[in-house]
């Protein structure tokens, strides 16, 4: 079974994820998971039951990548609007 069956354009992937829990990667080292309720052509999103993770890397100047102290801040939101221009990636739940 071809997992891509029914996907003609990238937005189909999002359409098929409505009402599902999705992973969203945002600019500024932010990640979200939440239930996708709505989206539009800008990739503006409405998510509910959201957990946000913010990666704060406190690397000394010139330190090799991955050698800074990383702290992760988590917080929960009940309902969230995400402006599309900050979206890097949306991954639907795995359909395997």
């Amino acid at each position: 079974m071809d997992p891509s069956a029914g996907i003609q354009e990238p937005f189909d992937l999002i359409r098929l994820s409505l009402s599902e829990r999705v992973f969203v990667k945002l600019r500024g080292d932010r990640e979200l998971t939440g239930i996708l309720h709505a989206y539009d052509g800008h990739m503006n999103l409405i998510l509910s039951d959201v957990e946000e993770k913010i990666m704060i890397v406190d690397a000394p100047e010139g330190a090799p990548p991955g050698h800074g102290a990383v702290s992760i801040v988590k917080r929960k939101m009940e309902m969230l609007f995400v402006r599309g221009d900050g979206v890097i990636l949306v991954s639907p739940p795995s359909r395997t």
Binding site: P10, L13, I14, V87, I88, L89, V90, S91, P92, S94
Partner: peptide, 11 residues
């Protein structure tokens, strides 16, 4: 790793 991923084109 993601089974499927949507990447917004401006990036």
């Amino acid at each position: 790793r993601y089974g499927d991923a949507f990447i917004r084109g401006n990036n």
